[in-house]
């Protein structure tokens, strides 16, 4: 039999490690969107004194690369401090898996992003984020690159769905190039609010539509 993946990928795909939803996680990250493809959730239990990741798990709605990378990266992060875990790259995970097909990079990058966003979630919840950088249009736009456009399967910035970003005294306003009656309007709005409201100096997030 000839399979399109290395034996390490197949092993992690067949027997993924650290799977399942975690009750009361200390940190949680969700990347991707069901409407457009792969999605991965990462949960953390962190020792508050040592900041070591004591337990980690993931859920995946994704392809083989996505599942295998999430399995590998949670293995790599377990027992590491948050600072160490943050530095784990997609390349390291891919190497540990004996390589991944280049076209599948985006599916597996999602797992790395899930880990990083779970760590960020922990840091934000525990007041560890050095809150000196004010939220700007650039900061908002960067976060919006993690919001998917279900029509295209790519993010809403790349697909030019975002017409306008306004940041004024803690109030963020986004204008999207779809009508409010669009089938995906509510889902995209929810995703945007979710990505922005945790920013330290943001008080309100408004999403408007062209009609």
């Amino acid at each position: 039999m000839t399979f399109p993946y290395t034996k390490e990928v197949l092993e992690h795909f067949r027997n993924p490690q650290n799977v399942g939803k975690m009750e009361d996680p200390d940190g949680k990250g969700l990347e991707g969107s069901p409407a457009c493809g792969d999605m991965v959730a990462v949960y953390l239990k962190v020792n508050p004194d040592t900041l070591v990741i004591e337990d980690i798990s993931f859920e995946s709605y994704g392809c083989a690369s996505n599942i295998a990378t999430a399995s590998m990266i949670t293995e790599m992060a377990k027992g590491k401090t948050l600072e160490e875990a943050k530095k784990i790259t997609w390349k390291e995970a891919a190497n540990a898996l004996g390589g991944l097909p280049p076209v599948k990079a985006h599916c597996s990058v999602l797992a790395v992003e899930g880990l990083r966003s779970a760590i960020r979630d922990y840091e934000e919840k525990h007041g560890m984020v050095v809150e000196d950088e004010a939220t700007t249009v650039e900061v908002v736009s960067k976060r919006l690159k993690h919001v998917m456009n279900p029509m295209a399967g790519l993010d809403i910035i790349r697909t030019e769905l975002v017409l306008k970003v306004v940041v004024e005294e803690g109030n963020v306003r986004i204008v999207l190039d779809i009508p409010s009656t669009h089938q995906f309007a509510a889902a995209i709005k929810e995703d945007i609010v979710d990505k922005l409201e945790s920013l330290w100096d943001v008080e309100s997030v408004t999403v408007d539509f062209i009609s």
Partner: peptide
């Protein structure tokens, strides 16, 4: 693609409309 790969390992060939495939 996850379904078809598992099925492949179990000895079945089918296809999917998933982008990943």
């Amino acid at each position: 693609e996850s379904i078809t790969l598992h099925l492949d390992m179990l000895g079945f060939a089918v296809s999917t409309g998933s982008a990943c495939f």
